[in-house]
């Protein structure tokens, strides 16, 4: 396994565990994200990827462990985490549907604007300057993700792929150091997926480190510098894409065991369970 990050880490998760009642969703998951790195987080359904994201962004308070951004422990409050510089998108798109694209991105600027209630009430010159700056920045971001021409369109009327990109633009509007993308290509066709890949590279160019959750392993291995695999709440493997890709444990977790092994198991199971069920059936009929 290669070293997690060669560059200075931006985001560090230390042994994060999350227990819901009796269910351990995450146990001692650690992660280091380097400056300008793209880190992929993969794992089968229910592995705890989104739970981990929620712990990173303060939506959940981890049962144990902590998350640090540039050496400072992040608070357990989504708004403060965003202010500190960690932005995210959601697995099921969560835009503000009856706001326009531009307004969605402007909401993202919220934490980077300072106008209080009184300024908002009186609309003085300083207020208007701030508002104009935010607008310019928001339009730049829409341009960046390729949505400039639909800036006046309601978010809910955008096509699916555009909604995903708008969510990224909205997250970028918070001026993050780290961007967390939760399944950014879910439901996309190959062309859109490729466009998203290019977009994530472009985001990295602007100096933002990215963590991506994705089921599409091909996408992850062609995108990321570093891949972590979560299985049943535990970090199974991590390392460079090629290392992770060839790791038999990953293949097993993802694809199951090789067909012949599975067949053998199934045969064994049916042989063991078969007579039992037959007995039960006849019992039921009598």
């Amino acid at each position: 396994m290669s070293a997690p990050a060669t560059k200075a880490p931006v985001l560090v998760a230390n042994e994060v565990s999350m227990v819901f009642g009796g269910l351990t969703a995450l146990s001692n998951v650690s992660l280091q994200l380097g400056e300008g790195q793209i880190l992929g987080l993969i794992g089968p359904n229910g592995a705890g990827k989104t739970t981990f994201f929620n712990c990173l962004t303060g939506l959940y308070t981890p049962t144990t462990g902590s998350v640090q951004l540039r050496g400072r422990v992040l608070p357990h409050d989504p708004a403060s985490v965003t202010v500190a510089g960690v932005a995210r998108t959601f697995q099921n798109i969560r835009l503000f549907p009856s706001m326009t694209s531009l307004e969605n991105v402007l909401v993202g600027r919220h934490a980077r604007m300072s106008q209080g209630p009184l300024a908002s009430l009186f609309h003085g010159p300083a207020y208007r300057r701030g508002e104009a700056d935010a607008r310019t920045r928001a339009l730049e971001l829409l341009e960046f993700v390729g949505l400039a021409k639909v800036h006046d369109e309601l978010a809910r009327n955008l096509p699916y792929g555009d909604q995903r990109r708008l969510e990224i633009a909205r997250a970028l509007a918070t001026d993050p150091s780290v961007l967390l993308l939760d399944e950014p290509t879910a439901g996309m066709n190959p062309q859109e997926t490729e466009a998203t890949r290019q977009l994530i590279f472009a985001i990295r160019e602007t100096g933002v480190a990215v963590v991506v959750i994705e089921h599409d392993t091909k996408f992850i291995f062609s995108l990321c510098d570093h891949v972590s695999v979560l299985v049943q709440g535990q970090l199974l493997v991590e390392g460079a894409p090629e290392v992770v890709r060839d790791d038999p444990r990953v293949i097993e977790a993802y694809l199951g065991k090789p067909p012949d092994e599975v067949e053998a198991e199934v045969r064994q199971y049916t042989e063991e369970a078969g007579p039992d069920t037959q007995v039960k059936d006849t019992g039921g009929n009598q």
Partner: peptide, 23 residues
């Protein structure tokens, strides 16, 4: 204004609004 947009964002999706840094 910034405040008004925050209100509308809360109306539309409170969790997403918090994730945008809105208290």
């Amino acid at each position: 204004s910034r405040i008004g947009r925050a209100w509308i964002a809360i109306r539309e999706d409170e969790d997403a609004a918090r994730a945008m840094g809105i208290k």
